[in-house]
Design a protein around this nucleic acid. Structure first.
Length: 98
DNA sequence: GACCTGACTCAAC
DNA sequence: AGTTGAGCCAGGT
């Protein structure tokens, strides 16, 4: 576990249910607005149920990836009330800053 | 310490 | 609007 990863996890934990944030937003939250990739890397390694990694998506609104399979991620989001559009995008209204 | 890799993002074609 | 290339950052080898 690295310092950066810890901060990332902290930020991700703060995402409320039924709401999602982009990798870039998380990066920004930890003070490294250009480290969206690293955020993804940290989440990819993280298997802790404490961190809702499935609430983190691409800046475009696309799902991005998930360590337990993208489909699983989609299901979880739907369960939490986040709508997934037919084009494979998350409902823009569910973004953290709306 | 240099080199490669990756759940990303932006700009250009 | 879909694809391609280049840029960025932290970790691991």
């Amino acid at each position: 576990m690295t310092d950066f990863a810890e901060k990332v996890y902290e930020a991700v934990k703060k995402i409320p249910q039924g709401r999602v944030a982009t990798y870039k937003d998380i990066a920004k939250a930890v003070g490294r607005s250009r480290s969206a990739r690293v955020v993804g890397g940290a989440l990819n390694k993280n298997y802790s149920p404490e961190v809702p990694c499935h609430r983190v998506i691409c800046s475009d609104g696309k799902l991005g990836g998930y360590n337990r399979g993208q489909n699983n991620k989609k299901s979880l989001l739907l369960k939490e009330g986040v709508k997934i559009l037919a084009n494979g995008r998350v409902d823009t209204r569910c973004m953290a800053g709306s």
